[in-house]
Amino acid sequence: MYRWDFAPVAAHLDLLAIGLFNTLRLTGAALAFGVALGLGLALMRLSRRPWAAWPAGLVIEVFRTTPPLVQLFWFYFAAPLVVGVEMTPYLAALVTFSIQSAAFFAEVFRAGIESIERGQWDAARALGMNRGQALRRIVLPQAVKRMIPAFMERAIELMKTTTLVATISYADLLFAANEVSQKTFRPLETYTAVALAYFTVIYGASLLARRIELRLARSGEGTVG
C-alpha cells in the first residue's frame, strides 16, 4: 500500500504560490486585452463596410476553429521568425490567449448588441445621437448587463486554458508542479495538491458566477450567449 506524504510538497509551497500568482496574472491580463479586443472585433463584424467586417470574421473563425495549443505554438515558435522579435513564453501566451478570448468575446458582444431591440437605436437616433453615441450611451450599457454570465463563463474557461503555457515553460502553477514533482519525487502528492488548488480557485469563481447570474435573473434581465 502506497503511503501518502504531502510534507515534501508543502516544503515547496513558495514555488507553487508563485506559480498560482503567475497563472492569475496571465488570466487577468489576457482577460483585459481579450475584452477590449473582442469589443473592437465585434464592432468591426457588425459594421456595414465589408473591408471591416470581413477580416474580423476571418480572425474570429480562424481562432475558433484551431486548437489553443496549436495557436500557442505558432505564436511562440513561428511568429518571432515572421515578425523578427524575441518572444518570451509570457508574451507568446498573452498574445495567444488575448486574441483567442477576443474571438469568443466578440461573439458574446455581437449577440449582446444584437439582442437590444431596434427601437432603442431608433429612439437614440431620433434624439440626434450618431451611431457611435447611440452605441456608447444607450445600447452597450444595456447589452453588457445581459452579457455578464457569458463573460464569466469565458473567464473561467480562460483560466483553465492558461495551463497550456506550461508546455512552453512559462512558470505557471502547472509548470511549478512539474518542477516540484521532479525535485521531491512525489508526483502523486504534487499533482493531486495542484489539481485541488485549481479546483478550489475555479470552483470558487464558478460559485460566484452562479450567484451573480441568479441575481441578474431575479432583477429581470435576460441573458445571452
Binding site: Y2, L174, A195, Y198
Partner: peptide, 23 residues
C-alpha cells in the same frame, strides 16, 4: 461533474499519466 468541470483538462491528463500509475 463539479470536479471535472472545475479543473483544467491538462492537469487531469498529467495527473492520470504521472500520478495515477503510482497507485
Amino acid at each position: 461533474v463539479e470536479f471535472f468541470r472545475n479543473t483544467p483538462v491538462l492537469v487531469q491528463i498529467i495527473w492520470f499519466f504521472f500520478a495515477l500509475p503510482i497507485l
